[in-house]
Design a protein around this nucleic acid. Structure first.
Length: 281
DNA sequence: TCATCACCTGGAGA
DNA sequence: ATCTCCAGGTGAT
C-alpha cells in the first residue's frame, strides 16, 4: 500500500512510454490493449475495465532496484528528481505497434497516429461513463487495407504496421513466448520484422515484455550518454548509431548500469527532456 | 560493415 | 508566405 502511494501517475504517463492517454479533470484515462484504465492520484486509485493489473509493475522490488541503479551519481540525481516515475507493463501488441509508429516521429504525432488507428479499427467501449475506442486487434490490422492505414496518417509506417500485425496474427510472433525467453533471443526475433530496429525493439522489450536489461538508445539517450558518460563508454558518438555500434554500446551500458539498466534509462530520459523543457502528451 | 539518403506528417523557426 | 529542419529510426543501395 505504501509503495502504491509513491507512484506519480502524471510523471509516469508523461515519460514517453505511453501515448493513448488523456487527462480529464483530475484523472488520467488511457487505453491499454483491450482495457480502459482510469487513474487517480490522491487518493491513489487505478481502475481497469478488464484484467489489466500491475500496470505500474507493482510486483517489482523497487527499493532494491532503485538502490541498485542509484550507485551511479547521475541516475541517483534523476531518481531524486522524479521519485514517483515508474516503468509500466503495457499490452504487448499495442506497445509493439506504438513504437513501430514512433520511428522518425514526435510524441504528439505518434499519439495522433495511434488515436486514428483506434478510431478506425478499435472496438468502441464504455467504462465509468467514458466512451473510447480500444486498441485494434492484430487480426483487424493484419487485414486492414493500405488505403485505410494511410488514412490514419501513418505515412511510410503503414506498411510496417500491416506486416507486423500479420506476423502476430499468424502466430510467428508470440508475445507470451517472448516474455519468457531471454533478452537477446527476444531482441533477435523482433528485429526480423520490417520497421523494427534496435531502438524500437528495446522499447517494446522494456515497456511490455519484462526485459529490464533493455536500454533504448534514441537521440535523447545518446545526448545523455555524450553529456554525462563520455568517459564511461568507448562507443559513444555524436553521429547516428549504426547497428553494430548500437549493439556494442548496449553491451557496455548493461555492464555498467546493471540488470535494471532499463530503469536507469527511464529516469535519465525523463530528467533530460524535462531539463530541456520538451513537451509530453 | 559502413556511409548516405529517402521517407509520411505536423509543427516550429528562419 | 515559403522554405527548411527536426521529431524518441529504419530500410535500401
Amino acid at each position: 500500500m505504501q509503495k502504491t502511494c509513491t507512484i506519480d501517475i502524471e510523471t509516469t504517463i508523461n515519460s514517453g512510454q505511453v501515448f493513448l492517454w488523456n487527462k480529464i479533470e483530475d484523472q488520467w484515462i488511457g487505453v491499454d490493449g483491450k482495457d480502459i484504465l482510469i487513474l487517480n492520484q490522491s487518493p491513489f486509485r487505478a481502475r481497469s475495465s478488464g484484467s489489466t493489473s500491475n500496470f505500474f509493475r507493482e510486483d517489482d522490488n523497487l527499493e532494491k532496484i532503485l538502490s541498485n541503479i542509484s550507485r551511479d551519481k547521475i541516475v541517483r540525481k534523476a531518481v531524486k528528481q522524479s521519485p514517483g516515475l515508474r516503468l509500466v507493463r503495457q499490452d504487448p501488441f499495442q506497445c509493439y505497434i506504438s513504437f513501430i509508429c514512433s520511428s522518425n516521429s514526435s510524441i504528439k504525432n505518434i499519439k495522433s497516429m495511434l488515436e486514428n488507428l483506434c478510431k478506425k479499427f478499435g472496438t468502441k467501449r464504455e467504462f465509468n461513463g467514458y466512451k473510447l475506442h480500444l486498441f485494434p486487434k492484430p487480426e483487424i490490422l493484419a487485414n486492414a487495407s493500405m488505403k485505410d492505414l494511410i488514412g490514419c496518417k501513418l505515412g511510410f509506417r503503414a506498411k510496417y504496421v500491416k506486416e507486423a500485425s500479420q506476423v502476430v496474427n499468424s502466430g510467428k510472433i508470440d508475445f507470451s513466448w517472448l516474455k519468457k525467453t531471454d533478452y537477446f533471443t527476444a531482441l533477435e526475433s523482433l528485429k526480423k520484422i520490417l520497421g523494427i530496429g534496435n531502438k524500437v525493439a528495446d522499447c517494446i522489450l522494456l515497456f511490455s515484455l519484462d526485459k529490464m536489461d533493455a536500454f533504448p538508445i534514441d537521440r535523447w539517450t545518446q545526448r545523455i550518454l555524450l553529456k554525462y558518460y563520455k568517459k564511461n563508454f568507448d562507443d559513444v558518438i555524436e553521429k547516428p548509431l549504426t547497428e553494430k555500434k548500437y549493439e556494442k554500446l548496449h553491451e557496455e551500458i548493461v555492464k555498467y548500469f546493471g540488470p535494471y539498466a532499463g530503469y536507469s534509462q527511464q529516469f535519465l530520459f525523463k530528467m533530460e527532456r524535462d531539463l530541456n523543457k520538451k513537451n509530453w502528451l
